[in-house]
Nucleic acid binder design. Structure first.
Lengths: 329, 329
DNA sequence: TACATTTCCGAAAACCTTTTCAGTTTTTCG
DNA sequence: CGAAAAACTGAAAAGGTTTTCGGAAATGTA
């Protein structure tokens, strides 16, 4: 087992004092270029990494951030988390992972733990796009909310732009010449469902079409199948359906096919989420809206950096989403 | 924002020396009960949390572990990671998350970072059950491998027992009276595919049946559909198929149905992984093997605790898996 | 050469906690 | 009561890094 090199090992190898070594390594300008070079080489040779504990003892940054997920990291949390981890890794930050499992007691506990460890900032990853209680007040460290925004508009939040996403989906269908467009989505208790329906209605109005019916249900394949029956019965002439999730869309396609409708010839289907396993594997592969969650996570992380630097950017930021065109339209 | 209390604040408030306060707080037995009480109250009042940085500087445990994933995008890593996080959280451990994205340079970098931060131990979460190079040598901290074992048998590794899982699947089919059992699975370059095929063959032999054909392909739904055609063509009398993954099984079921075979009446199907979205939503819902990944992760974490305590348990430990019976058999 | 600047370097303090060791007080026992 | 043992307390050091400040060396000026 190799002993981990300390700065005094480096200083000794370079033949300078500890103080000089520190200054050389941190880019202070009181060191001759040639001396600095020697120190840097010594550090390289010993693969020296400053001990963050010692550093933070001085009151400096700990180069550590907390990643607090409110619910056991679901399907949506993961990419956000990865994007954030990616950005932090590049910034020499270490990420402390805390999964509160939807338990607010546990969340409080984790927040205290994170503060005791003197994290420089916290990212809160939500489980849905519904607003969640702010934890920012009096915390003493910057907080950025990703996916699920804070209920305090002065906090910094990043959410996917579902309004724009659903507009894009509808516009795509209209461009293809579809005129009778239904919308099948999840529970209206979800902000995501409400916003997607709202965006869809707005886009239909823009196109001079009357808003089609909205079918609210579960976020499941089963509901997609049920809804197919309802939609086709309610309006046999329907030529397109915009689904609030890929799961719903996958169920819808399946049931529509069984009823003899060809996709996309008779009825075009657009999903939401771009959940690869469903969207790419369904038959035909699904046109869908990709919420770019990894980019969202990365962006949130970068803004946490900024906030740590004192350049916070309050507000709920809507991140662009993307239309992924496959064979279902 | 209030200044964070230090132990000397506590000592001062309680009217004792710093040393006494420390001993009282850490349960050392050289403090009179009444003194201890006073200190504890003072700590409570100031909501004092010891600074882990200062603590770790002394060479004591940092109460921090590294969670190194080679590819956490993979859906297998996630539950393992959650289980581990769960166990650590309960043990007052903080988890440093590092995602090397399958890049060994990056992995080296992260390992150095973790060491510089003086983690007490590291869990390495693999992306597949194939053995991966050991990082344990000369590291100076205990390492436990979860899901993907180390290639060094002296390391501590935890993997799902695919051999037993596939035996269970076959036994289940045999119990149901099925006799002509095919096996459709992924690429033979995967240890998982090889072991599952091996276990299946062994179980068939145990039952006095001749091993059916094995179809190697991709881990995809598409391959499942293709394979259905091949299997049904090769042996029209086949009455069961054991698939190496739920994706394959889902594809198989779909294609079999299209060819007029009823599941499970004409042909029973068992999947592998218990990937909820596929297994529970397919029609009919899939009987499948659940590898219990979250338990595996938790167990690995607990054994890391043990290893940190000096009670390592070398070897590759095969963790039990579970048959989940649904409607496809 | 003598002096004033400028440049560079190193000693030491500070950060917070734990632990050791020596000193002080209390208790026990003959 | 006196001595020995036990119980308790506090000063100080250690751990790795950054920063401040004073001093030394090098350079420029008279």
């Amino acid at each position: 087992m190799q002993r981990i090199a300390t700065i005094s090992d480096v200083a000794h190898l370079a033949g300078v004092s500890i103080a000089t070594a520190s200054k050389a390594l941190n880019g202070k300008d009181q060191v001759r270029a040639e001396t600095r070079q020697r120190v840097l080489e010594a550090a390289e040779q010993l693969s020296f990494r400053p001990n963050p504990a010692a550093r933070s003892l001085l009151g400096g940054p700990t180069k550590t951030v907390g990643l607090l997920t409110s619910d056991s990291v679901g399907r949506f949390g993961i990419p956000v988390l990865l994007g954030a981890e990616d950005a932090f890794g590049a910034g020499e930050m270490a990420v402390l992972l805390c999964d509160a499992r939807g338990d607010s007691i546990r969340e409080q506990h984790y927040i205290r733990t994170l503060l005791a460890r003197r994290v420089d900032g916290i990212i809160v990853v939500g489980e849905s796009t519904d607003a969640r209680p702010s934890i920012t007040r009096d915390l003493g460290v910057p907080v950025v909310y990703a996916y699920g925004p804070s209920d305090d508009p002065d906090d910094v939040s990043f959410v996917p732009d579902d309004l724009e996403g659903s507009r894009t989906a509808i516009k795509h269908l209209v461009t293809l010449g579809r005129r009778r467009i239904a919308h099948v989505t999840g529970l209206a208790t979800y902000q995501a469902a409400r916003e997607r329906a709202e965006g869809a209605a707005a886009a239909l109005a823009d196109a001079g079409l009357e808003p089609g019916p909205v079918f609210w249900g579960q976020w499941s394949q089963r509901w997609g199948r049920q809804a197919a029956a309802m939609v086709l019965h309610a309006d046999p002439e329907v030529d397109a359906v915009f689904c609030g999730s890929d799961q719903i869309a996958a169920g819808f396609i399946e049931a529509a096919r069984e009823r003899g409708r060809r996709v996309p010839e008779d009825i075009a289907v657009v999903g939401y989420d771009n959940w690869e396993v469903l969207a790419a594997e369904s038959r035909p592969p699904l046109t869908t809206i990709d919420p770019n969650l990894e980019v969202l996570g990365r962006t949130a992380a970068q803004h946490l950096f900024a906030a740590i630097d004192g350049r916070a950017t309050p507000g709920v930021h809507r991140m662009p989403v993307q239309l992924v065109i496959r064979d279902s339209t």
